[in-house]
């Protein structure tokens, strides 16, 4: 342990605010990114889960709040190149 006490660990000899601000921003942004991505995938999974029979010919939009990139989807993917 590089510090004598928990107080010293928090204070970092006066550099505490800088160090903790950096780590705080890092953790908050990474958590938002990870949780947000996870939730969005689950939301999209949910919207795919409806049985194919109950779909109308015009597929329902996935929740537009959680899926902004969905605007240009639904074109069936053709990988045929040759």
């Amino acid at each position: 342990m590089a510090f004598d006490s928990f107080g010293a660990f928090l204070a970092m000899e006066g550099h505490g605010p800088y160090v903790w601000a950096s780590y705080g921003v890092f953790f908050v942004l990474m958590a938002v990114l990870m949780v947000g991505s996870y939730r969005r995938r689950n939301a999209v999974l949910q919207s795919c889960r409806q049985p194919a029979g109950s779909r109308s010919s015009r597929a329902p939009e996935p929740d537009s709040d959680t899926a902004p990139a969905a605007a240009a989807s639904f074109t069936r993917v053709d990988v045929s190149q040759d």
Partner: peptide
């Protein structure tokens, strides 16, 4: 996520 959005009807 992106694959599901694009391929959900396949």
């Amino acid at each position: 996520t992106e694959i599901l959005i694009r391929e959900q009807r396949t």
